[in-house]
Design a protein around this nucleic acid. Structure first.
Length: 425
RNA sequence: CGGGCCGUGGUGUAACGGCUAACAUGCCUGUUUUGGGUACAGGUGACUCCGGGUUCGAAUCCCGGCGGCCCGACCA
């Protein structure tokens, strides 16, 4: 893609009032636009990052044998009355709206009810189980205080996976598989080093749930981390009983601020029972389906990356989620790329050729073809944070070399065309 | 929801109760420059968040809204 196609412009100054790093950088670089507090639009660059994250999540979900669907955002109050989650006393984050013809609707903050109700049409026998179903969809939560850029919004993207089983054993088994899938997801995304499985409060059905917490000063949670065991305990369940059950001692734990990027939860029959999702066993007995739910926040993950993988010049995207692989920056006058190719300057011609070759080899390249000064283009490249910057300039061409700069390390390599193509392939 | 700070051209800021609301940046024209936001000249752009009030006079003071950020509470 050519940068002249992008409508988003970078900003020189931090947006007014914003303190959080993710809001400052993502807005300055033109990845997101704040519509209202806690409500953000994703511009082309930001959307590409989000889609990269979603693709990684999808691959791991599919590997679990899960299938994707998309449920509705509008929710039927009757279902939530059955599970006692419609009343404002029980759930205070509802966005509720109404029909012109009378009657209320809710904007989904989660989808246990909807998917459980749906499955009643498709599950009636032990032969129909187990099932794993997920979606990546917008959730609405009427937070009393949206904060920290895209880390805590009122409208945000969420991946929610639900699993359905004949027994607790089968749920436990699947639950552990999801745990592994989540670890691989954070590894692939580039947050593996700083993300920890954390014991958190469980609910009626199980003693603990598991959170995936990424260490960050921008986080809202306090966890107690054992680096050696790669394990943490959320402050909410930190007590002697928990520690002895997990075989941890207070001495080995250090207190850290972190942000919850994922949460997996055993639901048991909390939803299947009140909503009536039952299956028949081999002997004709009727039992409520045993369920689990597994959440992941792609938008929040993007925000966390912006928080912890950035420097004073701008964003620094991990390769797997970067909006592009290579930022091809053309320096020098006459960078016009359109028109008769034979009439182009040598720099422009070279740039176009290498762009085409890289693109043909499967690389995603953002080509800065804008007619701006060198300093401006380089500063923008730093701000956007694409992993590799390939500089094409008159002086470099005279030397017969391409300059490749690693955004994260600042390391510079001078390569011939053959070396360059070989390297990125 | 309690508390604090704040609301001025597209963006970031300034302005004692008193001149035509200033500066930077952006944008437009021209010349210039082309490896770190180049320089110069000219130009464009604001009912100072909304509604009331005080005053001869309000961006400025007072009241009420609305909105933003932060701290706390909350977070299926």
């Amino acid at each position: 893609m050519f940068q002249s196609q992008l409508f988003s412009k970078t900003r020189r100054e931090d947006p007014k009032g914003e303190v959080s790093q993710n809001a400052k950088l993502l807005i300055r670089a033109g990845f997101i636009h704040k519509e209202m507090a806690g409500v953000y639009s994703y511009l082309p660059l930001g959307l590409r990052v989000l889609n990269k994250i979603n693709d990684i999540i999808r691959k791991e979900m599919d590997a679990l044998g899960a299938v994707e669907l998309e449920l509705t955002a509008l929710q039927n109050p009757l279902l939530y009355e059955k599970t006692d989650r419609w009343s404002g006393d029980k759930v205070d984050i509802w966005f509720k709206t109404e029909l012109q013809t009378g009657g209320e609707l809710g904007l989904g903050f989660t989808h246990e009810e909807a998917i459980t109700e749906l499955l009643k049409n498709h599950v009636s026998s032990y032969k129909d189980l187990p099932r794993a179903i997920y979606q990546i969809q917008t959730k609405f939560r009427n937070e009393t205080r949206a904060k920290s850029g895209i880390l805590r919004g009122r409208e945000f993207l969420m991946k929610d996976l639900y699993s359905f089983h004949v027994s607790e054993e089968d749920l436990d088994n699947f639950y552990d598989k999801v745990k592994g899938a989540y670890e691989r997801i954070f590894e692939r995304i580039g947050l593996g080093d700083s993300t920890y499985i954390t014991f958190a409060s469980g609910g009626v059905f199980s003693k603990y749930s598991h959170e995936f917490q990424t260490l960050s000063e921008a986080g809202e949670d306090l966890i107690y981390l054992s680096e050696g065991k790669k394990l943490a305990v959320n402050k909410e369940v930190l007590n002697d009983e928990t520690l002895s059950e997990l075989g941890l001692s207070r001495e080995e734990l250090s207190e850290k601020k972190s942000i919850e990027v994922g949460n997996i939860f055993k639901l048991g029959t909390r939803f299947s029972q009140p909503l009536g999702l039952y299956f028949k066993d081999e002997k004709g007995g009727s039992w409520p389906v045993v369920m689990g739910c597994y959440g992941l926040g792609p938008a929040r993950i993007m925000g966390v990356i912006a928080e912890i993988k950035s420097d004073n010049k701008g964003l620094v995207w991990p390769r797997a989620v970067a909006p592009f692989d290579i930022h091809l920056v053309i320096l020098g006058k006459e960078v016009e790329l359109s028109g008769d190719r034979e009439a182009l300057t040598e720099t422009a011609k070279t740039a176009l050729e290498i762009y085409e070759e890289l693109t043909a080899s499967g690389k995603e390249v953002l080509c800065d073809d804008r007619d701006l000064s060198a300093g401006e283009k380089l500063a923008d490249a730093d701000l956007l944070g694409i992993p590799f910057r390939l500089v094409i300039s008159d002086s470099a061409i005279k030397k017969g070399k391409f300059e490749l700069v690693d955004r994260a390390t600042g390391e510079i390599e001078y390569l011939s065309e053959a070396e360059l193509l070989n390297k990125v392939r």
